[in-house]
Write a protein that binds this DNA or RNA. Sequence first.
DNA 1: CATGAATGAGGGTTCATTCAT
DNA 2: CATGAATGAACCCTCATTCAT
Lengths: 187, 187, 187, 187
Amino acid sequence: MQSTASPRANRGPAAAAENRRALIAAAREVYADGGLAAPFSAVAKRAGVGQGSLYRHFPDRTALAVAVFEENVAELEEYISGPDRTIDDLLDRVVAQAVESTALLALITADLTDPRVQPLGERFAVVVSSLVEREHRAGRIGDHIDAEDVTMAAGMLATELARTDPPARPAVAARARRLFAAAFAPR
Amino acid sequence: MQSTASPRANRGPAAAAENRRALIAAAREVYADGGLAAPFSAVAKRAGVGQGSLYRHFPDRTALAVAVFEENVAELEEYISGPDRTIDDLLDRVVAQAVESTALLALITADLTDPRVQPLGERFAVVVSSLVEREHRAGRIGDHIDAEDVTMAAGMLATELARTDPPARPAVAARARRLFAAAFAPR
Amino acid sequence: MQSTASPRANRGPAAAAENRRALIAAAREVYADGGLAAPFSAVAKRAGVGQGSLYRHFPDRTALAVAVFEENVAELEEYISGPDRTIDDLLDRVVAQAVESTALLALITADLTDPRVQPLGERFAVVVSSLVEREHRAGRIGDHIDAEDVTMAAGMLATELARTDPPARPAVAARARRLFAAAFAPR
Amino acid sequence: MQSTASPRANRGPAAAAENRRALIAAAREVYADGGLAAPFSAVAKRAGVGQGSLYRHFPDRTALAVAVFEENVAELEEYISGPDRTIDDLLDRVVAQAVESTALLALITADLTDPRVQPLGERFAVVVSSLVEREHRAGRIGDHIDAEDVTMAAGMLATELARTDPPARPAVAARARRLFAAAFAPR
DNA sequence: CATGAATGAGGGTTCATTCAT
DNA sequence: CATGAATGAACCCTCATTCAT
């Protein structure tokens, strides 16, 4: 039974929102550094927050991953909504997000049927669909390509980058992008 | 005091090679089932071998992964040496190997600079190079494709499959293969 | 920054008494359900009251248990004051109270020397004494039985029931009651 | 992931049986002292054994409790097998075992349907039955008493003692014994 | 050389308690 | 005076690794 408690500063409920944000940010850093093997508690430590608060905000790793990706997807949605966005732009953003998110991405792809995860996938699918349609109309991609092809490519790209050593990433990204560009090109 | 311990069957040195093989096979099964999170000791148990023997043969996970991939690469080398083998054939084999090996693949790609891992990468590169050259000559793939493109594609394909739910794998494999075929095709 | 916290309804001092009652009722339910292992905080949650209020009213588990038993004893006192009440009637009430109170009873019997607990024991002793005296005069119990015997029997009975599976309780209660009746009977 | 290991003495498999015994003995002490709330790990510490070994021998608290009671019941069986043993003798032994075992008894009575627990209950029932039969024939107990009455009494007695402060135990034991003697007596 | 028990550090999670709002 | 988030110590359990037999 826990008998001792020696709290060391309690910034009060006002800190809740701030803590939540700090935890999400910390999660990006921790999982980018240490991969999925990183202790869950490391997120709390990095965020400068008690473990209890981590669990209050995110009862498990998936909940945290979902929160991270919610931000990612929101960013994509907003970015893509700009005029003249292309699949290339999308992949740019994906590449940019890839590294910090990949360990978490592994978590999420591990259970796509989780009810918390599905909405994210759907939002991403919508982003891709609208882009693909636009690109088709513009004749910039071939008729043999559909939204799911692009989604899969984005996923592969992100994963590939995530497992690449940082210094090698630009080269790998370039090569992969070239490969997919070739695949997408109208025939 | 009378020892109650009864070390079950010590078949002597002769068993060493057999144990080694059993461990490698067990590793495939264990990591295919449980992912990288599977306890290392589960490999010993599945192989019907003591913990000590596991550590004697493979001092760490990477050593075991290398052994598994050595078999995989050897199989590829042999397979590819047949006449008329194409990149398509290679990818077929990669797909076949992907699932059981992926957890271990994650291990290996995590440290490609490990001196034990490099030779494997090189052997795989040789396999791919010879194929690519042949395919170029046959005009079956475009000039914009080099061996490293194919290597990367094989890696992405394997990973993508590994993280796909078994029932969905055939569809995913088909889609990915189509994508890469489009990418490789002569223009 | 705008606080997003929204302390739900602070009904002012008037609510204090009401909260206290709600907490006691919640304690019965929570500990009846989950045993002593139930988190203290569950009482607050069940009562629909903040943690702080729980601690304000009852600084520790024992304080809460004492409050519960104060109600129990008061009920017994009132019940017993009726005319023609017998030890049998007392045990009936004890049985009725047993289940919901037992986890808390364990708490209380764990430290009978606690100054908050003693008065309860004494009040219960008074209840029993008056009954025993009456029964002695009526010749319904033997001279070998004193108030402490009955007190102990009541305690054992309550505990025995509390640790019995609900469906088996009637049978167990009947058997125990028969046993004690035999013990109490005049010779 | 556990990365460091600094074992501090490994007496080898030969210690297994010895460790098992030490754990059972430690369990008696720990739970007698601290009640069921005692950390499971305290048993390992008190036994001078690693936590892992504790879990290897006894995967959960119930397994440990069963082992303790197996010894208790065996002792009762042996004791009772002597000539001229009476229910009084049985209760003497029960009283003697009560304190050290009660926290564990709470554990066991919490799930009597556990397949590991049932055999123990049955063995105890056999012990009691043979005694009761003998006492009936000797006319030392009334016809209104059956084996289950005695079993219940033994249980109540043990529990009552267990929750009594050590100094008060002799008096409580005496009183309870007197009560049950009165209940059992031929009419 | 094989076996498998022993070890104990570490990570996951819960919950008692405090305190800003 | 109420609320409920924050805190972190403690417990549970698993598993990597060693080593007596």
